[in-house]
Write a protein that binds this DNA or RNA. Structure first.
Length: 889
RNA sequence: GGGCGGUUAGCUCAGCGGUUAGAGCGCAUGCUUCACACGCAUGAGGCCAGAGGUUCAAAUCCUCUACCGCCCACCA
């Protein structure tokens, strides 16, 4: 077999981009329904078209890619569905900011022109994220890219709306909603982020209409006093009972309003009396409605005071707050002001303070859908990993409220409802109706609003597969296998997909939900570009030259179900780069020793395998089983660690070193040579296959360099743990050999022996262990520079002048008279024997404890007895050594 | 106000009822050993946040406390 020249160092940048192109052109990413194979599917959590790849995307997509590559190798027909989201508010904001730099507002362009402008933006920047995902090695089916405003997808959105409308679940209502005065649209409860803000509590006197002292109320928002319609107290509050039913005057405007009693007032807060402002507070709105009070509005859609606010008209909310406070002070009605910290709602997108506001909107009644979704989760038809998120999802579904689905934006799916100018009848349809179905009028006006972006994303698993059409994709891939996402969108997206999946398909959209940790900086801050605290995955891969593999492995290896957050830093990627180099060099070693090897020749007979060969095969069989089970259980950190420890700690540190000894000693034996070559090849090949889902590029390079069958590791069969490889005897034997080698090295280091110097060693052990060590002579010589090695029965008298270590099964002696400082040796051994004896006392104490021997399981008791016995033997040997040393001194 | 996580070696984290609590990085010492100095070898470093409890046995289970973080919530 011709030997390829192998570069000494591995530069990921040189291979990754080229390799990705080969895969893509070979069509390995494509998923076409295949009745002969089992389907497996994952849906990419659609990134915003405006987005650029950040570390969170890198993690999320790496996890999905690990699963997809794993299942593909297992023989599933694996679909990884990509796509982007039009992201209504986010995208509109970006383009509006661009317009603002030109001194324009969207109204200056008009709806049509503005939309053209956004489309131009999307065409220019919308595919950046795709090329960035490609750079990470993401193996999704690019032929299936979907954008939520694509014609097919839009049809699905309108179809969903119309079906829900006709079921009576979508309705128009006038309610208190969350209004963003900057975006000038309603947003849902989930898009409001509450933050603690330092503010004040103003205590304001409302004088009695009869000239009495009236009542003092506490408020955070003096500017809304202008819209007050009552003062409320708790019905059982004796302080105010006499005032209920009387009239007080609203400060500044001197409007007479009633004092009412309502149990929703907390008598312990403030003065126990609260002003009622139904136009600007959700609770007040309810109380106002129950008491049949009027609603006054003093703020407009941009958060400025309206004409109703008299002399404050035109002022912004905050300016008005100051002005009103000053005027109250001057009027002598401001009793006091206290500092106050409270939770204030902000717009998720632009961080403006939300204004509770009454407006006409479209609502979706999700009560029944949520109930069915909760039932499905409770029945285990959707399983969350880690499990703790189950309760979080259920709590939200159980307390669900109607969903505001209209948005006062221009970018999104236009609400498919037309109103007749003549009779006012509203009609919902997937296309504009020709005439009003009620009066026949032809003058129909479409609703100006668009749908909440999350309404369309809730259809993602359906619409990407062709719904509402009955397609082969939908029949084959739905329901999908798993959804991978961050905890931040469990309600916004995950729960809603479950609701819509059940509503429109009668089946949940995915069987598993894997919630991965959120990436933070090493100091626990949010990764943020603007704060300069982020790690840019592409800068790491290309700029710093660590490669996409290193970024992926670093993220995946910290993807633990035990942690909600993942602290991440460049050092972690650097560590993986070192691991890659290690793997690369191990591959070089194997290739250098594969001369004349034919991987298609019959595998070596068991008798041809050395202990080392059998040991590494046994370890590999365990690894294969472990990695498979861990990936299936979404235990990514453990899978990554198992691979890392095996490759570095077992294959490189021990097997390769032992194989060197075998190859050298047995150079003339073709059967043994083939056995070692075969072991090196088969273990490394299968190991890179197991590692491929996490590090696709380097594993492909290695696999291609090694003798192989098939065109790519990507489409090679997932290694099955070979039960015939498990070999307890070889594992036990290598364990003893490793301990012995480590003991010799440790003694050498303490004696400061030059590394190259060969030292004679005497090993004392019982028969079976001596047989093992006999076989291990070449390893002892090469790995510990121990030569010659004398194997003694423990009964043989010890020579004088030895450095010694006493292992459970082996006594290691370095007879180096002259070099060994007897006093130091004695001190060291005495320390050891003290430790051993302390442990024996502890064990014996326990074994003499009747409670323990009577109540602990028999096997535990037996185990501890045996251990105590072993320790006694060890202690006796050490003491004998000490006596011998004393005799010499 | 309610809920959920976390607290283990200098750092990032495993371990989650039973031998002497582990890894990587960092640190110390020695090595240009024929795959690899992005490496090899050896070593130092921990009252497992605190206090109670359950158990023959607790880093591991329970209760409380403290601190850190996240989510939900109509306390004006």
């Amino acid at each position: 077999m011709a030997r390829t020249t192998i570069p000494t160092t591995y530069d990921p940048r040189q291979v990754e981009v080229a390799r990705y192109r080969i895969w893509k052109e070979a069509g390995y990413f494509r998923a076409v329904p295949d009745p002969a194979r089992r389907p497996w599917a994952v849906m990419m959590p659609l990134p915003n078209v405006t987005g650029e790849l950040h570390i969170g995307h890198a993690l999320n997509n790496s996890v999905q890619d690990v699963l997809t590559r794993f299942r593909r190798m297992q023989g599933f027909c694996a679909l990884y569905q990509p796509g982007t989201d039009h992201a209504g508010i986010a995208t509109q904001n970006v383009v509006e900011r661009e317009l603002a730099r030109e001194g324009l507002r969207r109204e200056d362009l008009g709806r049509e022109k503005f939309q053209e402008r956004v489309w131009a933006w999307v065409r220019k920047y919308g595919s950046i994220i795709y090329s960035q995902l490609e750079r990470l090695g993401i193996s999704c089916d690019w032929d299936r890219k979907v954008f939520t405003l694509d014609p097919d997808y839009s049809r699905a959105v309108l179809e969903a709306f119309v079906r829900l409308y006709r079921k009576g679940l979508i309705y128009r209502g006038r309610h208190m909603v969350n209004w963003c005065p900057r975006c000038e649209t309603v947003i849902s409860d989930l898009e409001v982020v509450h933050e603690e803000v330092d503010s004040s509590l103003w205590y304001v006197r409302y004088p009695g209409a009869d000239g009495g002292p009236g009542v003092v109320v506490a408020t955070q928002r003096p500017e809304t006093i202008l819209a007050d319609v009552a003062v409320a107290v708790h019905p059982a509050d004796d302080r105010y009972r006499h005032l209920v039913g009387t009239t007080v005057l609203v400060p500044l405007v001197r409007r007479p309003v009633p004092v009412i009693a309502d149990p929703r007032v907390d008598p312990a807060f403030g003065t126990g009396a609260v002003k009622i402002t139904p136009g600007h507070d959700p609770l007040d709105h309810e109380i106002g409605a129950d008491h049949r009070l009027p609603t006054l509005v003093v703020l407009d859609s941009r958060g400025r005071m309206t004409g109703e606010a008299g002399r404050y008209a035109g002022l912004d909310r905050l300016a008005a707050r100051e002005a009103v406070a000053v005027d109250l002070q001057e009027a002598g009605l401001l009793e006091r002001v206290e500092p106050y910290r409270s939770s204030v709602g902000h717009c998720d997108r632009c961080h403006t303070v939300i204004e509770p506001s009454i407006s006409d909107q479209w609502f979706l009644d999700v009560a029944e859908m949520a109930r069915r979704a909760a039932d499905a989760i409770r029945a285990g038809r959707v399983r969350f990993h880690p499990q703790r998120w189950t309760k979080v999802a259920l709590d939200w579904l159980d307390g669900i409220r109607p969903w505001v689905i209209s948005r006062q934006l221009w970018w999104g799916h236009r609400i498919p409802v037309w109103q007749c100018a003549a009779c006012g009848e509203r009609t919902a349809d997937t296309a504009a109706p020709a005439a009003c179905p009620r009066c026949g009028g032809a003058d129909l006006v479409q609703d100006p609003d668009v749908l909440d972006t999350w309404f369309s994303s809730a259809l993602w698993p359906l619409a990407t597969l062709g719904w509402p059409r009955d397609t082969a994709d939908l029949r084959y891939f739905y329901p999908t296998s798993v959804l991978v996402t961050d905890r931040g969108i469990i309600f916004l997206w995950v729960c809603r997909m479950i609701m819509f999946g059940l509503e429109f398909m009668g089946e949940v959209p995915f069987a598993d939900v894997y919630i991965h940790p959120t990436v933070l900086t090493l100091t626990g801050q949010r990764m943020s570009k603007s704060l300069g605290t982020g790690i840019d995955p592409l800068e790491m891969a290309d700029g710093r030259g660590y490669g996409a593999d290193a970024v992926r492995f670093a993220l995946i290896s910290r993807c633990s179900q035990a942690q909600q957050d993942m602290r991440f830093g460049e050092k972690m990627i650097e560590d993986v780069r070192n691991f890659n180099t290690k793997l690369w060099n191990a591959t070089r070693f194997v290739l250098l020793h594969l001369d004349g090897f034919d991987h298609r020749a019959p595998a070596p007979a068991p008798a041809a395998l050395s202990t080392a060969d059998r040991w590494i095969r046994s370890r590999h069989a365990r690894l294969a089983g472990e990695v498979t089970a861990l990936l299936e259980a979404y235990e990514f950190d453990k899978a990554a660690r198992a691979l890392y420890d095996f490759i570095w700690g077992e294959f490189c540190d021990w097997y390769v070193e032992m194989a060197k000894a075998d190859l050298q000693r047995e150079a003339g034996d073709p059967v043994r040579r083939h056995a070692v070559q075969h072991t090196l090849w088969v273990v490394l090949s299968r190991t890179v296959q197991l590692l491929h889902p996490i590090m696709p590029f380097i594993t492909e390079e290695v696999w291609q360099l090694l003798p192989h069958d098939g065109p790519s590791i990507m489409v090679s069969p997932w290694p099955q743990p070979d039960p015939g490889w498990v070999d307890h005897q070889a594992e036990a034997e290598v364990a003893v050999v490793k301990d012995t080698i480590r003991a010799i090295r440790s003694l050498r280091a303490e004696l400061a022996l030059p590394p190259g110097r060969r030292v004679p060693v005497r090993l004392r052990a019982d028969g079976p262990t001596r047989a093992m060590l006999e076989r291990a002579r070449p390893y002892l010589a090469d790995l510990a520079r121990a030569e010659p090695v004398h194997l003694d029965d423990p009964a043989v008298p010890r020579p004088a002048g030895c450095a010694a270590a006493v292992l459970p099964q082996v006594e290691v002696l370095l007879p180096l008279a002259g070099l060994v400082d007897a006093a130091r040796e004695q001190a060291r051994l005495r320390k050891t024997v003290d430790q051993v004896e302390a442990e024996i006392r502890r064990l014996e104490g326990r074994l003499q404890d009747h409670e323990f021997t009577a109540r602990a399981p028999a096997e535990i008791v037996a185990q501890q007895r045996q251990r105590a016995e072993e320790l006694r033997v060890r202690a006796r040997r050490i003491r004998e050594l000490l006596e011998a040393l004393a005799a010499e001194g």
